[in-house]
Amino acid sequence: MEVGKTLWLIILIKLAIIFLILRVFFFRPELSRYDTDAEKAEHVIENLTKQP
């Protein structure tokens, strides 16, 4: 296989792992479970103020 094709293959496999596996199954932003910025802010403020 030519180097150019091998490199494209590496890039595509890597992007698939990053976006289709890691992003979907492992890396959901924690704050995405809140719908609004106000809810996100409330959650973070609670974390920042309640922590001992």
Partner: peptide, 11 residues
């Protein structure tokens, strides 16, 4: 940042 460091990311 978004998953493991969400307080930081928001802050």
């Amino acid at each position: 940042f978004g998953t493991n460091w969400s307080n930081y990311s928001w802050f």
